[in-house]
Nucleic acid binder design. Structure first.
Lengths: 196, 196
DNA sequence: AAAAACCCTTAACCTACATCAACGAAAATT
DNA sequence: AATTTTCGTTGATGTAGGTTAAGGGTTTTT
């Protein structure tokens, strides 16, 4: 894969969601830059301003929050064709409340707030795209929140496996525990119980 | 207050966030209709398609989810100048996973999906407004989610009181418990402890 | 190849909050 | 004004998942 292929991947992603002209495709491609991350590298870090919004071309990231007791909580995993960023920090230039770390060698396309504003001015149709994407993210998070407050760990685990089959091959088990909101010990215990 | 005043309230809300012309103000005002709700009436109901998006002119709603065991979970309260709706259902015409009920006599401005699409075509600047609003909602929900998985009930209660002082005068205590993700009995016990 | 770091499991014990049940007060309905 | 419904409180008991500690396997680093 080369630079053009990566940018085509993003342009295709966009073209599937809104109508854009070839000219606009090009403007979009020019607005983003390619970055590569080795496993364990950080895309952005809690406490620092997150001035990038990333489109994952290949690889996986975990986006997580470290609480006041030092415990990590995975908010979501970003796979191929997903977005990773901290909207709040990106839009307000305040320190991020989240970190994003590569779980494997990964490639992303990134944009900073200034470039994004320029891009939106040049291609106003993208206002709609990002509205739709944000709406989608909101509905996904809403479902996740309601599941978290209404279902126990076993039910949340089953839901995750149903929704993301194969995730257990991609992500270490203690990260899955963190996503589920339980400790690794509890997930281990739980899985043992489920085998009966 | 009369019809014009209500619509001015919405137009002012919008004008504070994006630039709009007087002509656009008028188009927006015409796109929404006024509805009134008596205490306990439903704005929309889980299991039915939510074909309205509402701007709360006055009053309060609780937006909640009824889980598979029949327990209710408050996702949020919508006060004056807030929006209430189920984005997922509104945009996909699928049955809503949420209900919204008036906690007191309330007045709202509503729009349906068809009218909203028309409105967005007539006033494209609103694409940006709704993107910003949805982003804001997403960051609020994200914070709420992370607090829910990282803090205990006492900490969540303190955070709520800090962020929404006066909410205890506006909303019955068992609804606050539901928002906090605990039972009314637990909140009652908790508050007793806190007095010491 | 050795050392270090990371990951998973198991077990004993603990705690925050749920569950169940009962009571009185307040508010809404008749 | 009487009745019903809703609401907040308290107490006894239960439990999902947290905590602590320890051992062994696997992967990464040197």
């Amino acid at each position: 894969m080369n630079e053009t292929a990566y940018k085509n991947q993003l342009a295709d992603y966009i073209a599937q969601r809104i109508d854009i002209t070839p000219k606009e495709r090009e403007i979009i491609a020019n607005a983003y830059s390619i970055k590569t991350f080795k496993k364990k590298q950080f895309l952005f870090e809690q406490g620092h301003i997150c001035d990038i919004e990333a489109f994952v071309v290949s690889g996986t990231f975990r986006i997580f929050y470290v609480d006041t007791k030092g415990l990590e909580h995975v908010l979501y995993f970003a796979f191929k064709d997903w977005w990773a960023g901290d909207i709040a920090s990106f839009n307000s230039a305040e320190p991020s409340g989240l970190s994003a770390q590569a779980l494997e060698d990964s490639i992303v396309l990134v944009i900073d707030p200034t470039k994004k504003e320029e891009l939106l001015k040049q291609v106003p149709a993208l206002e709609r795209l990002f509205r739709l994407i944000t709406q989608k993210h909101l509905t996904v998070l809403q479902k996740r929140f309601l599941l978290t407050v209404s279902a126990n760990a076993v039910e949340r685990y089953n839901e995750l496996i149903k929704r993301s089959p194969g995730i257990e091959q991609l992500v270490p088990q203690h990260q899955i525990a963190s996503y589920l909101g339980i400790l690794p010990e509890s997930l281990s215990r739980m899985k043992k119980q489920l085998l009966k």
